[in-house]
């Protein structure tokens, strides 16, 4: 293992639970590199995660880590941040975790513009439970619970985040790992609610070979210029929002007249 990775990984918890070819490891690597170059203090950083394949990230990262309940990672993180605003709080969630069971917390964390960095690993499916339809699964796609095709329309995570008030929003894929890493660094340093969507694949449940997933990401996704919200498509990648707005904890302490 490379030194930078080894330093941030709980080696005793390996091997990890992820399937061969899973994109989660690429996101984990991108996060480690991003954190390492961000200059942030590791001892005042808390990593929070929800439930599902992505939720296991906290088990492998050697930080202060909190593996919460399904969907509630942002609510736990809100308590952590408000009780100690000096902490950097990073939240890893899956797409079902963040947008189905945790959808309410997602839009409200964005509305508050609370200074959290939310990294959403989007594989468009429920992986750990066996391949069921997710709120991000494209229409007509067959899954275990949509055997005749998905009759629903998917969320666009970035559009939802922007509409709800998030002030830093970006999307990259596991193929674009370097860009993903840069977006995570920027999200970490951004003051306010940051959402970085990491498009990953689930070879186990899609039946597509890992290399073909990466190849599809390479061919399908197109980088759009900054602030292209209006023409943001499911296959757009880039940084879609960079905004400065009052941050929740700062605002609270200002209003009650307390300096923390």
């Amino acid at each position: 293992m490379k030194k930078a990775y080894a330093e941030y990984i709980r080696e005793k918890n390996l091997p990890h639970v992820w399937c061969a070819g899973c994109g989660n490891g690429i996101v984990l690597g991108a996060f480690i590199r991003a954190f390492n170059s961000s200059g942030m203090n590791r001892n005042s950083t808390v990593i929070v995660s929800g439930i599902g394949c992505s939720g296991r990230i906290t088990q492998y990262l050697d930080f202060d880590t909190v593996h919460t309940t399904h969907g509630r990672a942002l609510a736990f993180a809100t308590g952590i941040k408000m009780a100690n605003p000096e902490l950097n709080v990073v939240v890893f969630m899956g797409d079902g975790d963040a947008l189905a069971i945790g959808g309410n917390h997602f839009i409200h964390a964005a509305r508050r513009n609370i200074d959290l960095t939310a990294i959403v690993l989007n594989n468009s499916i429920y992986g750990m439970t066996g391949g069921q339809v997710a709120p991000t699964t494209p229409s007509t796609r067959r899954t275990k619970t949509t055997p005749y095709g998905n009759p629903e329309a998917p969320f666009d995570i970035c559009k939802l985040a922007i509409a709800s008030g998030a002030t830093f929003v970006a999307r990259f894929t596991t193929y674009h790992a370097r860009w993903l890493e840069k977006a995570i660094t920027e999200g970490l340093l951004h003051k306010g609610f940051s959402v970085v969507e990491a498009v990953t694949g689930c070879p186990t449940h899609s039946g597509i070979k890992p290399a073909d997933i990466l190849d599809w990401q390479k061919r399908n996704f197109k980088r759009k210029n900054y602030l292209c919200v209006d023409n943001l498509e499911p296959d757009s990648i880039g940084v879609f929002k960079r905004d400065i707005k009052p941050e929740f904890s700062e605002n609270y302490f200002k209003l009650i007249g307390l300096k923390r």
Binding site: R10, S44, T58, D64, T65, V66, H67, I80
Partner: peptide, 11 residues
């Protein structure tokens, strides 16, 4: 959590 002790909490 938050003291840099590298503690893990889980359900």
């Amino acid at each position: 959590i938050g003291q840099g002790l590298r503690i893990h909490k889980t359900g």
